[in-house]
Amino acid sequence: MAHEQVLIVPGRYNEIKRICEFVAAGAAEAGFDDDTIFHLELCCDEASTNIIEHAYGQEGAGNIVISYAIAEDEFTIVLRDNGQAFDPANVPPPPAISRESIPLDELANQMRIGGLGLHFIRNLMDEVTYSSDNRQGNRLVMVKKLQKDES
């Protein structure tokens, strides 16, 4: 049986640290190491920022509901909001950056920085799914597998 905790905060930047601390406490309880907890905090920070900036479009326009569930082999984080639908799948990843392959003058033009937060989430989480409907709002589910072979 999964052990689940829920936190509801106003969609404001100064609440994001509380979201991160809430998830970090759950991740520590689940048995993740400090590096992984750091990654989970970053993902929750980025996801919450996207909710404020893209779903609500501003601070204070609605709540963020965050929950986590600890199961035997995975840790699931769910962020919900009632803002505009914002499907991360529609945001392309940033291009690979290589200082050796392109002149530096072109580099600045190639650096797309809008999708950096999603890039972190995609890279650091094992599963990321997004859904949206009029009744339940937007729902971002991020899953991190628990490594049971860790001592």
Binding site: F38, E46, T49, L104, A108, I113, L116
Partner: peptide, 18 residues
């Protein structure tokens, strides 16, 4: 700690310095 907003801030300054 640094998030994408912090990176964005540094990249913006790097561009202007350059």
């Amino acid at each position: 700690y640094i998030n994408s907003g912090g990176l964005r801030c540094l990249v913006s300054a790097w561009r202007r310095a350059k």
